[in-house]
Simulated assay, not measured.
Amino acid sequence: MHQVCLRVEEGHGYVQGDRIPLQRSKILIGRKSGGSKLDVHFSNPYISRKHAVILCEDGMYTITNLKSKHGLDVNGYPLDPFQQTVLCDQDVISLAKGAVKLTFINQAETEHEKTRDLVLEQELFKICREKRRVYIQGEPLQLNGKDMELLLLLDDNCDRVVLYEEIKKQIWPERFTGCHSMPDMVDQEELTALVYRLRKKLGSAGEKIITVPRTGYMLEK
């Protein structure tokens, strides 16, 4: 029987490479303190007393950010307070901006199980929206942050041109003014660079992102 565990990459109180078995359906992760009932605990002051929880239901593992003060990332993607995401084999969990780094290991997870939640399947690549993962020819591709946000936006509008302004508003909401009387804080060069980077990471699958001159971009089926 394959063991499901967390491998410690960084974390005060453990040695790098230590494996923490996940033998219960609920695993509470946090900072070690008097009277705390934790399954996995660290002494780093940046870790919240109750930082995150891993749940297992019907063989599927999820992790939830318990409103931690210094944050929780999975594969570089930050989780909002109480946001939950599915864990897959080799996912990297980062607590408090890297103060603690853990790798989720589930060797029993087959490639079929990894991709069972795919909502878009194309000849060259697959997108798993729930797990925020991309597969190229069956191999997982690391996409984080705005790269993933752009791909999901284009996927939402597959075979439809997404206008430049629409992309800017969705990818940089904190910087997009949306007011014609004020210049946008996202220039065209920055958007072009993001699309170029995404295409490069997708390899030959990047050819499915079509440029519509002076208008926007489209993900072609």
Rank of each mutant, 00 (worst) to 15 (best):
G35L: 00
V74P: 08
L55Q: 05
L163T: 10
L6M: 05
Q84G: 02
E174C: 00
G145R: 10
Q3R: 06
L55N: 12
L154W: 11
L120H: 10
P78I: 14
D80W: 00
G178D: 06
K114R: 15
Q188G: 09
A193Y: 03
P81Y: 07
M218L: 13
D117C: 04
I47A: 03
G76S: 08
I20H: 00
N144V: 05
L143S: 01
Y46N: 05
R19K: 11
S68Q: 05
S68A: 14
L194G: 00
M218V: 04
K32N: 13
I167E: 00
T64Y: 03
L118W: 04
Q23W: 01
C179M: 10
G13M: 09
N157Y: 10
K201C: 09
K208E: 12
V134G: 07
L143P: 07
E123V: 12
L194F: 04
S94W: 07
V195M: 15
N65W: 08
I105E: 15
P78R: 14
A193S: 14
M182C: 03
I54S: 00
D91T: 04
V162C: 02
L194K: 02
Q83G: 05
C158E: 13
Q16K: 11
T211Y: 09
V92W: 01
P213K: 13
G216A: 05
R160S: 09
N44D: 14
L150D: 00
L163R: 09
H70N: 15
P173L: 03
G13N: 00
V15Q: 06
F125L: 13
Y164H: 09
L153V: 05
I127L: 05
K26T: 14
R116S: 01
Q23L: 01
G203N: 01
G17R: 03
R132L: 10
Q3H: 04
K32V: 09
H12N: 08
P81W: 08
E174P: 05
P183C: 01
W172C: 00
L141W: 03
T64W: 04
R214A: 14
D159Q: 11
D155L: 12
V162E: 07
I105R: 14
L38N: 07
G11H: 05
P183F: 01
K32Q: 11
M1S: 14
K69L: 12
I29K: 01
D156L: 13
